[in-house]
Design a binder for these strands. Structure first.
Ligand SMILES: [Zn+2]
Ligand SMILES: [Zn+2]
Ligand SMILES: [Zn+2]
Ligand SMILES: [Zn+2]
Lengths: 127, 127
DNA sequence: ATAGTTATTGAGAATTGTTGTCATTGTGGT
DNA sequence: ACCACAATGACAACAATTCTCAATAACTAT
């Protein structure tokens, strides 16, 4: 029941750490393949799922698309996301909003929240 | 290029209208089958996709799960969602928060936003 | 360093969720 | 009632993810 650290796991975590934004499994796969040629897609799925179950990475959902993932120690610094509908990338944005309790219906328990701004990123906005 | 109204479409929209909360395709399928026995899953997918393209329904994403959908005329009354991680249902909640522009990085264009509170619903909370 | 134990990998099969195809059905116009 | 053709339902095709398992390689104990 011991655990063995591998080249593949290191590469996957390194990719997520360097990315600076939530990445899809395919993106992680492509990026990790640069470091570990021949890495299997199965391994990426398996590793990401394990990390997610252990709470070391968090999933970010975008309607109609596969989830993206980012390291939880990044998520630990409470933050939110911006989804550019032009290039389909998701960015981290700092800060939060207050007064969420005000929205909570009575009898409901609040454990957390997710906020995603939608629009065009600096690279895609017409300006 | 004309459009023909059918029993199936009526049932699907009725299900979404009566639900009062975002529903998955499977849920819509099951509920609609009560009204229109023998309705095809393809038809539900097709109809929901068409409604989404026409902007008559909006998709709600939950990490690790298929999207849910709800009528846009409901969404027109700007609102947000609550995801109960115990029963996995998503509820509509009224109201919004201000000061979102404050979070926007410079050069980014804001078109909209999604906010999802996460926790336990009144039925699932220990209280 | 060497060899043994077994957790982890990679390839592909299997599953699940969604879209495409097409003969048949049934709506809406006449 | 008849016709034209939009919409349906069954199933094939595709996409995303998980499962299976023989081969590999990380750690342990010599
Ligand atoms: Zn962009
Ligand atoms: Zn926040
Ligand atoms: Zn609940
Ligand atoms: Zn709002």
């Amino acid at each position: 029941m011991e655990s063995r650290r591998t080249r593949q796991q290191d590469a996957i975590e390194a990719v997520l750490a360097d990315a600076g934004r939530p990445m899809s499994v395919q993106e992680v796969f492509s990026a990790a393949a640069a470091t570990v040629p021949g890495i299997g897609l199965s391994t990426v799925y398996r590793t990401i799922r394990k990390l997610a179950e252990q709470g070391e990475i968090a999933a970010v959902a975008v309607p109609g698309q596969p989830d993206r993932y980012e390291l939880a120690h990044v998520a630990a610094t409470h933050h939110h996301h911006f989804h550019c509908t032009a290039c389909d990338r998701v960015f981290d944005i700092r800060g939060c909003v207050g007064g969420l309790d005000r929205l909570l219906p009575s009898g409901f328990e609040l454990h957390g929240h997710e906020l995603t701004l939608v629009g065009a990123c600096d690279h895609c906005s017409g300006t």
